[in-house]
Design a protein around this nucleic acid. Structure first.
Lengths: 325, 325
DNA sequence: TTGTAGGCGTTATCAC
DNA sequence: GTGATAACGCCTACAA
């Protein structure tokens, strides 16, 4: 049997309503009383009962995160960061890896105050009037909830400009180019647009996939290209990892002979074979935005279908440098 | 404002305790009354309030799963399977990716009925008298909770025997061998023991890591070994994937020239470049066991520190075949 | 077979 | 400042 505020009350010789106040930092209780109650509570190993609290408060202060069953490391990092971001808020987060439908059920059962979903799974969610934010490609679908998205076009613009300023003119893009995946498309298109603005010729290499190895095997083609690039923009963490490894095996000096900038701004970029210069919205920032968005949505209780495009930033490391003439 | 049993009672012209009974399939309510109540409930879109129910029932029928490292695909698959396994039970599952401590707090807040943890994080958990099961290496640590573990030794024995029966005598192991990781060690040792039993010479190649690429880069060494093996046992899904790719690149016919058996019995083995023969406890089975264990633990409410070693099985596919003379 | 009433652990509203 | 007391939504004896 777990200890309740009544037990504490008895032990501390006060009424249990006073205990409740003390525990909730109400100003209506004398400091010394509070101290005592708090001490007793701790001694007895008191754990508040969420269910009871919720019953009267009508709020759980819990957010459900619907995890799309993907084992991509960047997403995993994002989830971890979101979880961490909640720590500084009164909310906590629970995860479900079920189908959107089952997850919704579980979350409803818990009466979570809000949900975070990834854009891909958001189609199936038809929860009117329930705090929800989605992360991912905003695309065309007019949703009834806010969408947090990274500005991919801007990312590529910054990356290209950065390399341009370092003297590079032959900048290639390595990534998944021939696909229906909107996210990937936005990246390629962003690259192309950025290049055109600078009057540079584009050169993209299709990895045909999003895995490490897909980047790895593209390198041969890239190196034997008639117009061998002096700089490469890798489409994702995994892909860039493969590219980097392949270059290393061919003893190509980085960044002296070839510069490399990767998409995805996650801490892991630091610990790659060569610390990787990267572009994208830093995950912690992204996580923060998502968390803020859902909380705001809950607390202001307003509807809205805003799309928030986050500004990416470039993190300089050692994989990119000035072009050698 | 959501609808409660009182609302239903009013609408159906019965008392709300009758509604409660009807909703809980109590036999003490006339069939016709129940029908009506159920209909009205559905019409009004009734959703039971977990918090209230829990408050009186003292049970949540929710299990917390503590998920430490999200990034490994095999673990991700296991978690997904566990989640699926719960679907056929009255329980549901929530996940936390926090540190064991924070996760415990969240779970306690929710008053989950039980927890599943992975053995690695179980050290930090000191929850006496709380239903808990761990998955992972049973090792030396005398725990106060049941541990579900795969029998790695047996796995290797089966794999080696299988290859032996196919005529192989030079069977190599490729995996992480020089480590403190108990799980990895059990695999190598199992391999060595099995080989010794058949009077075969062991030959293991250290991948120095657990990633795809670690398997990939080990292949050269393996092929130039003085006693080139006719069969390989890969230490994990990722490693075997790398080995397979490297062999493909060298145009080595599989299984004609070289047989490959991988540890880890997950469905993804089917869709590798060459459908992979594998050994290990099938994930779905594993998941089922874990789920059963925690539920049993909760419902029987008994203590115990049993260790359950699951029997692995070998799934035949196309990556291994008879040795060619 | 149905209804009444008490209680689960909290918070919140009043009195004191 | 502190203490009763009424909710919150539901379950479960027990009474009718």
């Amino acid at each position: 049997m777990s200890v309740t505020i009544k037990d504490i009350a008895k032990e501390a010789n006060v009424s249990y309503s006073t205990v409740s106040k003390a525990l909730n930092n109400s100003p209506l209780v004398k400091e010394i009383t509070r101290q005592k109650i708090l001490r007793v509570a701790k001694e007895m190993g008191y754990e508040p009962n969420l269910a009871a609290k919720q019953l009267v408060r009508k709020k759980t202060e819990v957010i459900g995160l619907l995890w799309p069953t993907i084992e991509r490391i960047v997403l995993a990092t994002l989830v971890t960061n979101i979880s961490k971001a909640f720590e500084t808020t009164p909310y906590s987060m629970i995860l479900s890896v079920d189908t959107p439908e089952t997850a919704m059920d579980t979350f409803k059962k818990f009466q979570v105050d809000g949900m975070i979903v990834f854009a891909e799974s958001s189609h199936t969610i038809t929860q009117d009037n329930f705090p929800l934010v989605a992360y991912g490609v905003s695309g065309k679908n007019k949703a009834s909830y806010p969408i947090i998205d990274a500005n991919h076009e801007k990312s590529m613009e910054i990356a290209v400009q950065y390399l341009y300023d370092l003297g590079h003119r032959d900048i290639a893009y390595v990534g998944l180019t021939d696909t229906v995946d909107t996210l990937q498309n936005e990246k390629v298109e962003g690259y192309q647009k950025a290049m055109k603005q600078l009057n540079l010729e584009t050169q993209s290499f299709n990895t045909d996939g999003l895995n490490w190895f897909d980047g790895y095997r593209t390198v041969d083609e890239l190196l034997t290209s008639k117009k061998r690039p002096t700089a490469i923009i890798g489409g994702s963490y995994d892909i860039s990892g493969g590219v980097l490894r392949a270059l290393q095996e061919r003893s190509i000096q980085i960044p002296e002979e070839l510069s490399l900038v990767s998409y995805d701004n996650i801490p892991q970029m630091e610990t790659m074979e060569i610390p990787m210069t990267c572009i994208g919205v830093p995950v912690d920032e992204l996580a923060e935005e998502i968390v803020n968005a859902i909380i705001e949505r809950i607390e202001l209780d307003e509807d809205g279908d805003s799309v928030k495009k986050l500004t990416p930033s470039l993190t300089e490391r050692q994989s990119a440098g000035p072009v050698s003439k």
